[in-house]
Amino acid sequence: MDPKLQQSVFYAVLALAVVAAIGGGLITHGAEGLAFGLFASFTLGGSLMCIWERSVVRSAFSLMATFMGVAGLFVLLGHDFLAMAQVLIYVGGILALLLFGVMLTPPDLTERKLTRVGGAIVFVFGGAGLVWNHVQSATRSLAVLPPEELAEATTQDRAIGLAFLHPEQYVVAFELAAFLLTVALVAAVYIARRRTEDFEPEEAA
């Protein structure tokens, strides 16, 4: 099939699916459903585009939609602090890192094989569909409250900050995380550094 045609078909299907998701959410759950449909479409559509796109730069940018969508889901769930952290760290940090990776490696526009992608989707989703039923029945036993009994979703930044520093809660993990980040930083520099011999000119034999 012609690549341009492939592209058009893919995006048409994707747009339809997005419209269907948003519309379905609006119909069943009103405004909340609309927002959920929108964010879920962002999330899943972004990752689908990421898999689909030939150019790794496009894939990386479409991943931004995924991260923003997840941030939107966090807002919907009432965790605005997490949403902000998601945007800051994923979009601002990790995505930028990925783009650096893209810049430092050569482009390769021929590596995507549709058969391979399609096979993987069938393989994974076919299997996942098999177990979905079972998972759903398993979650029934979880201590999940029905939506009408939920407490008001409030901003809890202060509680998070206190929990981080409370000696009986997360202070050890917090400090360990700080340590881990430092170590990761140093290790990344160490691993990625160029050895001095790389810079030495080749001897003319």
Partner: peptide, 16 residues
Amino acid sequence: ISFAVGGALLVAAFHI
């Protein structure tokens, strides 16, 4: 990774 996923699915299927 494919093997791992396949294995996980097999285990899940076995449970079901």
